[in-house]
Amino acid sequence: MWYYTKKLEYPIKIKNTNPTLASLILSQLGGPDGETGAAMRYLSQRYTAPCHEVQAILNDVGTEELSHMEMISTIIYQLTRNLTPQQIMDSGFAPYYMEHTTGIYTASANGNSFTADFFQSTGDPIADMHEDLAAEQKARLTYDNILRLTDDPDVRDAIKFLREREIVHYQRFGEGLRLIQDSLDSKNFYAYNPSFDKCKPAKKF
């Protein structure tokens, strides 16, 4: 279970609104490489991880991703504060506004709604760990894309923090993959699924 901690993981205080930027950063909430997908991916995969350390990594990184959903949502919320109809009309935020006003909704910058098709939980921890490593890199490059498009220091500060977290999570998943492989036959890591084909049957009937 979870308890809510009534604070952000990192402070967000955005002075200037920017609805077009909000509609782009939206991808890191509900896009294919966003924080919602990350949280759902790791929290789904943790059950069949083959050892406690990897279960802990998936559990705790997944939990941190929930706090990143909250950070991205906060950025979008603050970037769209007190907008006038004219500001909306003049910005890239107008199509989103038509369906959601300034409510926070999980969608990508392209306007596609979040879908569970963005992530997998294969039940094979080696496949899952490789997906997780790739996911952290894809999230990191999306943050790089955001940083190229804005010079607002209030936004950049929070986005740079989130980008760093992707790198740390990548490191932890790399260690998770190594932990799993260390418990396997080094001549063939892929001979079987360590979460499913647990051991040879003791007795044949």
Binding site: L8, I57, D60, V168, R172
Partner: peptide, 18 residues
């Protein structure tokens, strides 16, 4: 609160694999 809280989150993840 956020600075020490972050140190705790970071140490938690590190200790999961160490």
């Amino acid at each position: 609160v956020q600075r020490y809280g972050f140190a705790v989150v970071e140490a938690n993840l590190y200790l999961d694999s160490h």
